[in-house]
């Protein structure tokens, strides 16, 4: 097919020939959303379910998120899995700051999202007060399916298909920066 065809034929004809048209931003967001690599940030019980979500039965690899990176510099999403103690909070903030943009945070479990059953001197009551959170996952601990669903929600958000509580569409992540 000649390059000229791209300009002479209309979109429907091109699609029939197997050529899809999109914007660069959408293409980048689509690629990004299907390779969201999490940083290994298991803290407590939820970390075990986080590990389970990559095993043979649940297989998070289907959504491109199985590659847990030990170095935050290679990771896209920080899954805060478990209760965050006040001693760990500055460490987590630093790990988050070490991650390259664009980056996202999933707060996994009741303890990370709200302090859960540990309302005391030692536990941070909301991870949102330390780092900005994109998706909260309820459960104590959440099932692997719930975590996979959270990753899918995050993919939607990255692709610009997500809506907030007031039914406003959330913007797509820009291709070059956040």
């Amino acid at each position: 097919m000649a390059l000229l065809d791209l300009f002479s034929k209309d979109v429907q004809e091109l699609e029939n020939e197997g050529i899809l048209m999109t914007s660069l931003e959408k293409l980048v967001a689509w690629g990004r959303s299907n390779s969201v690599w999490p940083a290994t940030f298991g803290l407590a019980c939820c970390a075990i379910e986080m590990m389970s979500s990559t095993d043979g039965r649940n297989d998070m690899a289907r959504f491109g998120s199985e590659v847990f990176r030990a170095s935050p510099r290679q990771a896209d999403v920080l899954i805060v899995a478990g209760r965050l103690s006040k001693k760990m909070a500055p460490v987590m903030r630093r790990v988050w700051e070490q991650m390259p943009d664009p980056k996202w945070v999933i707060s996994m479990g009741a303890c990370a999202s709200s302090g859960g059953m540990f309302n005391n001197y030692a536990v941070v009551q909301n991870v949102d007060s330390v780092v900005p959170v994109d998706v909260f996952v309820p459960g104590c601990p959440p099932r692997p399916e719930a975590l996979i669903f959270a990753v899918m929600q995050l993919q939607k958000k990255i692709r610009g298909e997500a809506i907030d509580e007031g039914l406003t569409k959330l913007p797509m992540v820009e291709a070059w920066a956040r």
């Binding site: 478990g82 103690s85 001693k87 005391n120 536990v123």
Partner: peptide, 9 residues
């Protein structure tokens, strides 16, 4: 102590 949760208290 990075996971100190205050169980005993």
């Amino acid at each position: 102590g990075y996971l100190h949760t205050g169980f005993e208290k």
